[in-house]
Design a protein around this nucleic acid. Structure first.
Lengths: 337, 337
DNA sequence: CTGAAAGCGCTTACAG
DNA sequence: CTGAAAGCGCTTACAG
């Protein structure tokens, strides 16, 4: 074991003193060269005697040998780091489960997933990718153009699962919302965004889905509302509509609840005068009255697919989503439509 | 510029071809040695002629030289990586702003913040810290014991801002909830946890705060409720109370809204028969009826303090929170108390 | 079937 | 005031 002496002058940073087991330790203990240890532990050990192989693997385990990422990166010229970019939106258990799945799947493939918010400053993102040289960046949401070109320029693989299906999932969500409303007899539809664009990463694609569904059904253009989760804003946006008898597809359940609350105060009957459909099937959507119609998605399954796609893309070189299955989506019909 | 050739056999991973500017490039262009470049760019340039210093810095900027994190880590024996552990709880804009602040502050100090969920598997966390050797780990929430001892063993600094104030912020939150309820004349208090422990990371500390405040006010022990955001569970837990005339401090606004909804269905008057206080001042807490009393926190300011504390701890060696200011907390009184 | 050697890009103690 | 040299831990092409 090499006891690491910290550098002498600590002007900037205090270093911990690590006790590390290196490949040299393993090699000595096993009576082979470091090259042998490296090859055997990296799956290129076919050429070695099975006994040697076993011995090395056994000893590495006993010593709890963990190769240094820094050294490996330096030697290989690329890291095993994958950076996951989280949208700057409210998210709870669901999205976190997806990320956990991703973490584990990538870890099993020898890759390390590390997270960032996609909205943190471009500057710090640039530093991150320039210095860490991740193997890939996977973005849950649409990337800034500047970040995208940075990655292209550096030759860092970009994986964007949400763009990959033949019909992007967000377009489908909007379409399903609209088709449900149309099937309940509504002919005048609107789309309600979250006003803060940062929190509305999927809004544009979903609004497109609503618009396309309306066009296909021969309905007029859909007005676009923009509101925060706030009673005043909801009332104001509602007033822009030629009520009664409108149906609104909402960015998420919170937006729908804000509109629901405003409608109640304005004396509108829901769903007779105003129909609402949310998205996410949040627990609270089932606690308001009337209970909210919404859309539910099997996001865990989606996480698994995403993970597999990334592993495939990183290990196999393709970014295409050859499996053409789609994320399962389901309308949860309750009392607001 | 060194064009990096990818290794010949790509059994596991496809590598991108990077075009990197190295310190050698800078050194050549400036007509100095790599050592000089290193020292000048790392703030140890006092010994060099000002002209040399300026030239090197200028050229490094022009070439957009970004030192390789891997090489630096290897040479220095410790990385400049800080791992931030996110609680596995619902969070929206607020917490994300804190994280963004943290990212930028650390970046300004030359450190790279990278995120993980604290609940992802211990195994993958171990791999992360063993291979990446972060300079520090900062945990927004309480760490698993196994993870904690792993870090101790490896000598990796652990920063836990939530533990640092003289009175931990979560204890204070519980106490403020209870004190508010007591001040409104309630004498029988309960605490409502989120049932899923993963989503209730701060619950125990807050329940302690409620209990301590009640003890201090001479009130009886507080019953503990556990519920998900679900009408049935809320009703069930409500039935365990000897109603009417109870006041419940809730883990967050969602829990309070679930109880509010159940109370409404059970024909209880709020706040006469049942008082509720939430936590977070979510937008929706102001949209339900009656509007929810809750607690608001200046989490942005908290993020800044946290960032400074981490930078100080990492660069200065102390983990103590010498600044004794507290996170601002404020009761937002509305109609449920 | 296995090992010696070179090299990844950087930092730092040391020599001039 | 500045540079040559050694070394961080690993990987891989090559020689035996």
């Amino acid at each position: 074991m090499a006891a690491r002496r910290p550098p002498q002058s600590l002007t900037r940073v205090n270093y911990a003193v690590f006790v590390t087991v290196t490949s040299t330790d393993v090699a000595k203990a096993a009576g082979v060269s470091r090259a042998a240890v490296s090859q055997i532990l990296n799956g290129r050990g076919e050429r070695f005697a099975p006994a040697t192989r076993d011995r090395v693997q056994q000893i590495a385990r006993e010593l709890n040998y963990q190769p240094s990422a820094a050294a490996r990166t330096l030697a290989r010229g690329a890291s095993e780091l994958v950076v996951g970019l989280l949208p700057h939106t409210t998210f709870g258990g669901h999205l976190q489960d997806v990320v956990d799945t991703l973490t584990d799947e990538l870890s099993a493939a020898g890759l390390t997933l590390v997270l960032r918010f996609s909205d943190s400053s471009s500057h710090s993102f640039e530093r991150l990718v320039q210095t860490m040289r991740p193997l890939a960046v996977v973005s849950i949401t649409r990337l800034r153009d500047s970040d995208r070109s940075l990655l292209t320029e550096l030759g860092i693989r970009l994986v964007e699962p949400h763009l990959d299906a033949r019909e992007p999932v967000d377009h489908r969500i909007g379409r399903m919302q609209a088709e449900h409303l149309v099937s309940r007899g509504y002919t005048r539809l609107a789309y309600a965004h979250l006003r803060d664009r940062r929190e509305d990463p999927f809004g544009p694609a979903r609004a497109d889905g609503v618009r396309d569904a309306c066009r296909q059904a021969g309905l007029p253009a859909t007005p676009i509302l923009n509101l925060g989760i706030d009673a005043d804003e909801a009332r104001r946006e509602l007033n822009r509509l030629d009520l009664p008898r409108y149906a609104i597809a909402c960015y998420n359940d919170d937006v729908a609840i804000a509109l629901l609350s405003a409608a109640r105060e304005a004396g509108l009957r829901v769903p007779e005068d105003l129909a609402l459909i949310g998205m996410d099937n949040t627990p609270i959507s089932n606690l308001v009255s009337p209970r909210l119609t919404t859309i539910e998605t099997d996001i865990r399954g989606a996480g698994l697919r995403m993970a597999q796609m990334i592993v495939r893309s990183v290990t196999g070189g393709t970014t295409e989503d050859d499996s053409d299955e789609q994320v399962p989506l389901r309308v949860v019909e309750r009392a607001t439509t």
